[in-house]
Structures are given as structure tokens and as C-alpha cells.
Design a protein around this nucleic acid. Structure first.
Lengths: 343, 343
DNA sequence: CGGGTAACAGAAACCGGTTTCAGCCGACCA
DNA sequence: TGGTCGGCTGAAACCGGTTTCTGTTACCCG
């Protein structure tokens, strides 16, 4: 009923019992007589008492919280990541702290500060310095998501190389395409870096000269439109295909290409990476690589929770989750027999 | 250097000083002689000591954290929201706890639990029950974002009504359109609810009969494609225009319409709400309403931080941030003179 | 040389919980 | 009737910091 911010001692005084009894009742531990329990519950109910997390966490010796650190939020990838992480943390009654480092200069320090507020941290690859990562790992269990950590810091990531090799080989060999370009900025993102390397390696494996440089744009849909402007603006010869570092930029390139009256895949093929929900629904449907982002984050949360439970380091070195090449219309493959573009 | 999890008392013993001195040095408060300071700093440096947040927060009587509660993460809107909130919290050295309630049945309880872990909470409208909101407000300062709270709980929201009235009136009067449909689910989202109501009111103001029901889909791009399937599938007469509750569904409808060979705006007009970055870049560019999402979240964070500083309730009742009608090509307005669809 | 003061260090209390440990009381049994 | 045991309760210690309050020392000045 009445207002808040009560403490155990106040409730104890109001109920005429000791703080130990209040604690026992509110936690359901130990033995308490029916009479005492009723008195305490009445006082708790009447004053809307809820134990403060700080005292409880301090006594328990754990924070009951996990940290998630990423460079910035953009697009479906990060929302999937957060949700996967959160959905695994909540059932364990752990709250989730987030930190977007953006490009703040003091982000290393903020991450270390977070290391004293939580029971474990998942850090996106490429977000903070290796040195900060190592220092963080001395404070709490750490897992690197979508990247590799220095030393023996465990990591969880998707198989970028296998699928990007298969995708590029498919374009070069099966569709006999040349003059592919790669859209994405390898620097700063281990994922993009691996994809770019695999894109080049697939070329070399087939004795084809890959482009020297990627088209460096960042990872949002608007950047894909800008890349389309740059590639299809008419100043340079039009490439045969655009291999994008993620689906979002691919959808941007698609929008830009269709807006210029180009036909996809007849005039230009486009591929993405991630298999976001809308990739299957656009016309033409987007050829891409499916990676289990939610599962990636959930696995990271599980590793941290397990490590936070018992002291000692996390055993596993690097966990690589499988990915899957998804061939659709935008690379020139025929539409599936079950139907056209819709649905 | 060596490992972690040191306490003040351990450092004090190692440095041969009292815990008070260690605290003074690590906080830079009080008077400490150069000799003592050096000894303490050496020990801190040598053992990589960082004060634990729990003890510090307990002594300070504040958590140094803000909470953000939303139903689920989908699309650019929520990422903007989180970033706006986070960017305002971090400079105040407050960490950000997030909670996605999804549709979990115990979310009311989880929100109340959060109320004892943070100094204030921002809750998205329509996320938890009014009763839980009132109980939460007794624990910590609360602000409702994009919605209205019960009682005198302050809120921060965008002006949905004014802009949606203007947009609908523009379509009905300036473009002389009839047979508009509204895509979005009012139930559960105060924003969508207000937009749907304003859509209908604009009809009534002009003596035009609005549609009886909205096309109820959820708010992601894929749902817009599904709505396009439903609306343009050929079973019912094609509407003249599709007014969407947000840009994401509008982009989905646009993709679906273009995929069926329809021309926008000649055969069908489409409008959105939010003005996400890609809305200006698609072809045709999307007519929409710009709302300051980041600013909305930042304002919520500021209100909470201010209220957490001094006890007592947040003064302001409801803060309504202005929105702006953005007319582009997709509603039939001419392309701006400065250039075509691209760029 | 005595008294006052400023600078500094440490013991102890405190923040809000949990948990251990000791003690009280009633019941049961010999 | 006395001893033991089990159920229940509360005082006190503890988690890891901060802060107050009390000394102690050295220095300066008259």
C-alpha cells in the first residue's frame, strides 16, 4: 500500500521480529512459525517491501547480471543478438547490462568498469582493444562473440569462411561470373574481415584475379544505397555482381539497382549475408548465408553463466557454429518450384 | 599485473595502510601524503585492483544504473531508442539495464525486480500493466516513453496525432484519394493506437467514411510484405493508398508492390511513419513523418537522472515532442527539384 | 618553550541484505 | 522428574566499499 524504499530492519521493527526472520520469510528459507510468517508477510504487503538488490548481491557475492558490449546498434543483426542474449539471461534471473562503445575513446575504461558490475561479459569482436580484453578477463569470465579473443579467451562465432568460399565459388563457377565486387569494410569487424578474405581466396583457388580493394561502406541499408550510387553511377564499368558483407547493405544495393531500372539478376546479381527475415520476401529473393545469430548470443550467455557459477576459466577455446548457403533468385538461380517471389 | 578480485582490505594490508587510506587514494578524496599515495598506487597497480561496484553503490545509496523496458526489439526504431537512452546515460556514469518483456507472463514481476536494481526506469508504453507501473513508480522514478502512464507518471512521446491528421488530410484533400487502408495493430502500442485514431478522425473531419478495421500485422518489414500479399493478392479490390503505422512495414509493402509490377505512386501510394534513414533513399522515396526517437529516449534518460539525483517525483506531466510531415514521391508528390530518387 | 593549528592516518560505523551460531522453549522419553 | 532433542528465534558477523570521527604528529608563532 504505502510508499517504498523500506529496509529489512524497518520491516523487522514494524513486524516485531528480527531481521533474520524477515529475510527467512522473504526468501522462503529456514524454519519460521506460521504466526511469525503471517506478521512478516503482513508488514511486507502493507508497505510494498522488496529487498534491495545491492545488499542481496553483496551478501551473495555475485551481481546477478551479465554484460553485453558492442560497437553500436545497427540493423536486425544486433537486435537478434541482444534478444538471443537476453532470452538466455532472464530465466537465470540475471539482468542484462549493455554498453555501446560507439567510437568513444574511453570505452576500454568503461568496459573494465562494467567488469566490476556483472558476473560475466560478452564482447563483440573488434569492439575494444586486446589489452582491455585481457584485463577484463582477469576480473570476470569473458566471451568474444563474432570474433576471436587474444590469449585463451573463449569465443563463439559463425563459420564465415566456409560459406563465403562456397558462395563465391558458386558465383564464379556455377554462374560463370567475373568482375564481382565486395561491399563492406573489413577493418574493425572480424566477421567482415573473414568474409572478405574468403571472397578473395575463392578467386585465387579458381585462378581468377579478385578485386584489389573492397567497396568500403558501413553496414546499414542506407550505406548499401550509397554503394549502389557509387557502383552503378556510370563512371566505371558496371560490375557483374555485388557480394555484400551483410543483408542490409545488399538490400540497399538492391533498392538502388531497381531504382535505376536495372533488372536483378539479369543485369546484376546481388548477394548478402545473414538471412534476415525480409531477405526471403523481397523480389527478387536474396541469395545469402544463414547464420544463427540468436543462437550465437544465447551460447555466449550460457558459457558465461556456467563460468560465473563455478570459479575458474571457461574451458572451451573457440566455438564455431555452422552456417548455410541459401541460394535464391538474386544470384541468378531459378526460382524455387513452390512459387514465385511472394510468400 | 597479477590476478583480480582484490578487496580494499587486502590492498590495505599489502600496502601497509588502512582501508580508509586506500579508499581516499582510489577516489582522489581527502588528504593523503605522497608516501602513502605511492604505496597504495603501487599495490593497486600491481594487483590490478578495481573497486567492486556493489560495495561502492551500497555506500553511496544509489545504483548508478538506469533501466529500459520494451516489449521486444524490432527494427531501426528500437535501436535508435536504445542508443539515444544509452548515450545520455553513459556520460553520467550510469550503466543501462535492458529488459525485453516479449510476451512473458511474469514480466510485471521482472520489472518490479528491476526497480530495486536501478535508480530509475523508462518503460515503453503498452509494455506492462498499469498496476505494475504504479507499483514500480513507488520504488523508483519512472518515465513512460511513447505512451501515457496512469496517474501522474510522467511521459515523453512524439506528436502522433498532429502529423497523422496532416498526412491523412494531405492524401484525402490534396491528392483526392479514397479507399485508403491503414496497416498496423493498434492494440498494445499506444503509438499505433493514436495514429489509427488520427487516421480515422481526418476522414471524419472531411466527411469521408474511413475503413472500419486496420490491416492488423506487426511492425517489421517482413510483416509489410505479408500485408502487401493480403492487400494486393487480387481477391479484394486494390486500395488507392496504404498508410502504414511505421516505415518498416511501409518498406515491406513497397517491396511487395514493386515485386508485383505495380508502379508507386501511379498505381498505389504508400506512406510510412518514423523517417528511418533508408526512407529517403528508396525509389520512390517514402512519404512519412519524422519523429525524434533518439531525442525522445535521451529526454527520458535526462528526466530520470534528474529525478534520481534529488528525491521526490518528476515534475513534468507529459512531454510531447514535435514531429514533421515529410512529403516525398511515394504519396504522389512531385520529386524535389534538387534531384531524382537517388542520393 | 608552550600553545594552537593544520595535515594526515586509522578505528569504527554504516549502507541493506544473508547466514551462522547460540539460546530458548516445548515435547518426548526413560 | 530430569535429560535430550528438535523447532524456532534473534544477536551478531559478514559481504566491499565510503565516511565520520578521533587521534597523533609536526610545524608555526608568540
Amino acid at each position: 500500500m504505502s510508499n517504498s524504499r523500506m529496509t529489512v530492519r524497518e520491516i523487522a521493527k514494524l513486524a516485531g521480529v528480527s531481521v533474520a526472520t524477515v529475510s527467512r520469510v522473504s526468501n522462503g528459507t529456514g524454519q519460521v512459525s506460521e504466526e511469525m510468517r503471517r506478521r512478516v508477510l503482513d508488514a511486507i504487503e502493507k508497505h510494498g517491501y522488496r529487498p534491495d538488490h545491492l545488499g542481496r548481491a553483496l551478501a551473495a557475492g555475485r551481481h546477478g547480471a551479465l554484460g553485453l558490449v558492442f560497437p553500436g546498434l545497427s540493423g536486425p543483426y544486433f537486435t537478434e543478438l541482444i534478444q538471443g542474449f537476453e532470452s538466455e539471461a532472464v530465466p537465470s534471473r540475471a539482468s542484462v547490462h549493455i554498453l555501446c562503445t560507439h567510437l568513444r575513446s574511453d570505452s576500454d575504461d568503461q568496459v573494465l568498469e562494467m567488469g566490476r558490475r556483472v558476473d560475466g561479459v560478452a564482447v563483440m569482436g573488434g569492439t575494444i582493444s586486446d589489452e582491455a580484453l585481457l584485463r577484463l578477463a582477469k576480473l570476470v569470465p569473458v566471451v568474444v562473440v563474432a570474433g576471436e579473443g587474444p590469449g585463451d579467451i573463449p569465443s563463439v562465432r559463425a563459420d564465415n569462411v566456409g560459406s563465403m568460399l562456397a558462395l563465391t565459388r558458386h558465383l564464379l563457377a556455377d554462374h560463370d561470373l567475373r568482375d564481382l565486387v565486395f561491399v563492406g569494410t573489413p577493418a574493425g569487424s572480424p566477421d567482415v574481415s573473414e568474409r572478405w578474405a574468403a571472397f578473395r581466396r575463392a578467386h585465387h583457388d579458381l585462378g581468377i584475379e579478385p578485386p584489389a580493394e573492397p567497396v568500403a561502406v558501413s553496414m546499414q541499408q542506407a550505406d548499401g544505397v550509397l554503394a549502389a550510387d557509387q557502383l552503378l553511377g556510370g563512371e566505371t564499368p558496371r560490375p557483374a555482381g555485388v557480394v555484400c558483407a551483410n543483408d542490409e547493405t545488399a538490400l540497399g544495393v538492391l533498392v538502388g539497382a531497381l531504382g535505376r531500372g536495372l533488372r536483378v539478376p539479369q543485369d546484376l546479381i546481388i548477394t548478402g549475408f545473414d538471412d534476415v527475415p525480409v531477405a526471403a520476401l523481397v523480389a527478387p529473393a536474396l541469395t545469402t548465408v544463414r547464420q544463427p545469430v540468436r543462437e550465437l548470443a544465447a551460447e555466449a550467455a550460457r558459457l558465461i553463466l556456467r563460468a560465473a557459477g563455478q570459479p575458474g576459466d571457461i574451458p572451451g577455446g573457440g566455438l564455431v557454429l555452422p552456417t548455410e548457403l541459401v541460394l535464391r533468385r538474386s544470384c541468378g538461380c531459378p526460382a524455387p518450384p513452390t512459387g514465385g517471389t511472394g510468400r
